[in-house]
Simulated scan of single mutants.
Amino acid sequence: MNRTSLRRTLVPAVAAVAAISLTACGAANEDSNDSDKGLSGTLNGGGASSQEAAQTAWRAGFQKDNGGATVNYDPVGSTGGREGFLDGGFAFAGTDSYLSDEEVAKAKETCGTDAIEVPAYVSPIAVIYNLEGVDSLKLSPQVIGDIFNAKITKWNDPKIAELNDGVDLPDADINAVHRSDGSGTTKNFTNYLTNVAPENWPHGAIEDWPIKNGEGANGTSGVVAAVKDNPNSIGYADASQATELGHVEVQVGEGFVAPSAEAAAKILEVSTRVEGRPATDMAIDLDYKTSDSSAYPVVLTSYLVACQQYPDAKTADLVKGYLTYVVGTAGQQAAADNAGSAPLSAALADEALKHIADISAK
């Protein structure tokens, strides 16, 4: 990859987003009734499907304020988004798994300088289930690991029953649903299991599902649909996109915690930055082992990745403007309202905005 890759015409991204419904975009532009207001042009990005609800809200809000702008976001998954950005096809990417060291180096080649990686929001990953007559389900990380590792295969297994005294668990096979595509949600989910229950989940933190068990489904919406359409199923997904399904209460210390934006945000307070990163990289190592029962530990920190410099001023202004809106107060509230995420703390948001403010044309 050479440093001129972003000078290409973004044809791959345009082709990829052609089939995506732009209803939200059109509605926002119609509401503005002023194509001359603010920034103008087309901005193509893509990545984490878990960001889809937030991206829809962000695009609508940004386009309302910038009547001549169109933002396209292709929810191809975190892996696809990072690959699209590193190949020069996307001007920005959304990812639920921060860049690897190798990707950090490749991003520098793509951009010509260190890339910007800033958190967009933190959101709980719900362990979702469809179990008739069961309105409350408590599971330990060890049991969750055994279920997704196909070591526990029946809903009335003694290890599940012991955590759910008085709950009528069916004598039924468990259908464990996982992502079939490369996924930052999978990476965060398996990273949690690796840190807290390594003996029950021995496969490590991975983006691509490592074993042939259960049911694979594409994207966040695919996992949610598979669990919803198949009784006795369990899966994992961004909590905001699975509101009609049961959410497991996960054991933390001596208690059990249900997913919520507030409980997910607690993790960031006790977590540290990834070491050895450029100053423009805000990647965070989450502390999954917390025993604070007010914190929900199965979370994803969703990031936006962009260049510090772009070949032309229009692209630079659009990326800078859009990311500024996303990380700013209005964008964070829009994500909270529409995606159930926890807004960034003032300190994190201010730091991210300083990096975004440095985006410019070469």
Rank of each mutant, 00 (worst) to 15 (best):
G67T: 14
N218Y: 04
S97A: 15
S302N: 15
T301R: 13
D337F: 03
H355K: 00
F85P: 01
T79D: 09
L268M: 10
G81F: 06
P158I: 14
W155N: 06
A279E: 15
D146G: 04
S240V: 00
V257R: 00
G68Q: 11
V143G: 02
S345H: 01
V17S: 13
G47M: 05
R59S: 06
A48M: 08
A336M: 15
D74K: 05
G67V: 12
T70S: 14
S32C: 01
A283F: 03
I152V: 14
L131P: 14
E83Y: 07
V327D: 03
P12I: 09
N195L: 05
T4W: 11
W209G: 09
G84Q: 08
N195K: 08
E215F: 07
I125E: 03
V257I: 00
A53M: 07
A120R: 12
L245D: 11
N149P: 00
S136G: 04
V224P: 06
N2F: 14
V327G: 02
G184N: 01
V250M: 13
V326G: 13
N149A: 12
L22T: 10
A265T: 05
L344D: 01
V122W: 06
I234T: 06
F62D: 07
L131W: 14
S40R: 13
A150P: 06
A283V: 04
T23D: 10
Y98C: 07
R3P: 09
S341Y: 11
